[in-house]
Design a protein around this nucleic acid. Structure first.
Lengths: 338, 338
DNA sequence: TTGAAAGCGCTAACAG
DNA sequence: CTGTTAGCGCTTTCAA
């Protein structure tokens, strides 16, 4: 920071005491006389002293900073995750440093590298849609840097994870659609490798199987989550010989693209085709028709992930990785009411 | 960080050279023999060395980190601002540390304090809606900590600012509404003290004046931006003796609340009442009717703010504060086409 | 081209 | 209850 920063040394000199006494007084050490402590505090105030966290961090080998890696910031879901993490971290005396991978694998690796060299005490990571190899996570394990994965996770690492019950969520959607009389339910998934996609497809298939509806591979398509891709795949589905009577989109943003496309083709939702998303964005109920979706407790996910990591940091010995799975809630609106 | 971190000392010992040589080699100092440098690099690689940024920061008194304070993260506008800042910062070798004030003045002050003690090299700040006194900014000036204000700014400080031309944007909206034949245009503003509100109201009034429409104080209301407040005020406007035939909302989220409320009352948009927002959220064109609005270059704002701050950091002497004002674009959609 | 040594601001034995 | 001292990992004179 700028020139002339006030240090504990300045306070010590002014008060003609030692720096260690100042240091202790500032941290409310019980071994310091009340009077001395008050004098130190007063002088610190007077000089507008701000502790140098950098020096503290170097000394105690702990930055009290958490690193966050998310695929993107401009997404209500991840922004809420981050809010949950941040509020929790602050309450427990930690800062956070946020990086976004922009859904790019190389960027994700680079983000983690940056965060490590910044010496964050631990990491909270949500993987990019491109991520299909995991040496960078293995590397964290080897370096004994604590981290937890949330939402966009992978399995097989001895770390905590926080997710929603994607399978059950997708199951509930599909069941609901079947109950509305839909016979040919299409699923627009994200990239095939993504954990949440696999899980949601599993729930979708489970519901179909239970109802004796056979699974048609043509009805399952994989989007790279761009608007172009979403619209193209919707078009592709509409071109099927046996057209779908419902579309289940992997998330609300995809559902919105689908909705725009369907409207542009003059199709009526839900009459001609039902539509359901996943996530429950704040605008989803303002759409026309209002979008049925699955509500995910994003803030809560962040909160849990942060608390878990912080517990681990506090007491590494007795820590055991946990796989936290949160419930989702099916939100039925007009886009799926036949 | 964890135990057994590799340091330059480890490299020096392995190679039987001094730490200063290692330090220099690592930073590609020209005074080091190529051969030595290569050996150092190889060994660093082999030992999986990661420089300790904390130690570097303490030594050179520079953290290469920028602090960001925004009112909220879960907003597409601010998330885009941040993306712009982040991309720019990374490209120029800086990290960012993000705080959200949650639109709370005390939190804003606390965020800035935290960021300062973390020794960020500079700050990018967008004020909370509650902020009406500015000692915390004055304090930054006194400490000679560089900062730039963006979007939610205040005037009167010798610092750079980045905004859009709010007055002109609001002027264009109001003009457009008048052209559509609207005679009684209501304005739902944010808190009265907010800079952007004042500016936008000015544009609104200017357009009315130019067209000889007299300004009716009953048509200008101040929301605290909560959904409850937005709906209550809409209701209040509808209860006016002389009802409005258009509503201009301070931003898209407010406009969406208004839209929901109007629909719930069975009113037709734009037939019964026209509606325009400000910001252009990605979903705004998916609404029914699609929402007319003003497009703000949020990412670009972040980019400019970051570049400006970074320039200042690079060369503090020759730096002059700038007030950057970006253009907006009126986006006419169905919600305002009579 | 390299090394020795000082020191950034702070904390934490250890000693008194 | 307080002071002395060493040192976290790194950069940077200064000297060789």
């Amino acid at each position: 920071m700028k020139k002339g920063q006030v240090t504990i040394r300045d306070i010590a000199i002014k008060l003609k005491i030692s720096v260690s006494t100042v240091s202790r007084a500032l941290r409310n050490s019980p071994e310091i006389k009340l009077e001395t402590r008050q004098k130190v505090m007063a002088m610190a105030e007077e000089l507008n002293y701000t502790p140098n966290v950098v020096a503290q961090s170097l000394r105690v080998n702990r930055t009290k900073t958490l690193g966050i890696v998310v695929p993107q910031l401009a997404s209500h879901f991840f922004a809420s995750n981050i809010s949950g993490i941040q509020d929790t971290a602050y309450r427990r005396g930690y800062n956070v440093m946020i990086c976004q991978s922009n859904e790019n694998f190389e960027q994700e690796k680079s983000d983690i590298r940056t965060l490590i060299s910044t010496r964050v005490d631990g990491l909270l990571i949500s993987l990019s849609r491109e991520t299909e190899s995991y040496e960078h996570l293995q590397n964290l394990i080897e370096r004994e840097i604590p981290f937890v994965l949330f939402d966009r996770i992978t399995e097989g690492f001895p770390v905590s994870t926080v997710t929603v019950d994607d399978t059950l969520g997708a199951y509930k959607v599909t069941k609901h659609l079947l109950e509305q009389g839909c016979k040919r339910i299409a699923f627009i998934s994200g990239p095939e490798g993504m954990y949440i996609c696999k899980k949601r497809i599993a729930g979708y298939e489970q519901a179909l199987n239970e109802s004796g509806v056979n699974i048609d591979g043509n009805l399952i398509v994989y989007s790279d989550l761009t608007e172009e891709s979403n619209k193209r795949l919707t078009n592709q589905l509409l071109g099927l010989e046996e057209k779908p009577d419902a579309i289940f989109a992997i998330n609300d943003p995809v559902a919105i693209d689908v909705m725009k496309f369907l409207k542009s083709k003059g199709m009526k939702i839900p009459e001609d085709i039902a539509l359901v998303g996943f996530t429950n964005m704040p605008v989803s109920d303002a759409l026309e028709p209002s979008l049925s979706t699955v509500d995910q407790p994003a803030y809560e996910m962040g909160r849990l992930a942060a608390n878990n990591l912080l517990d681990q940091l506090l007491d590494p010995e007795s820590f055991e990785p946990q796989n936290l799975v949160l419930d989702t809630e099916l939100v039925i609106r007009n886009s799926s009411k036949k």
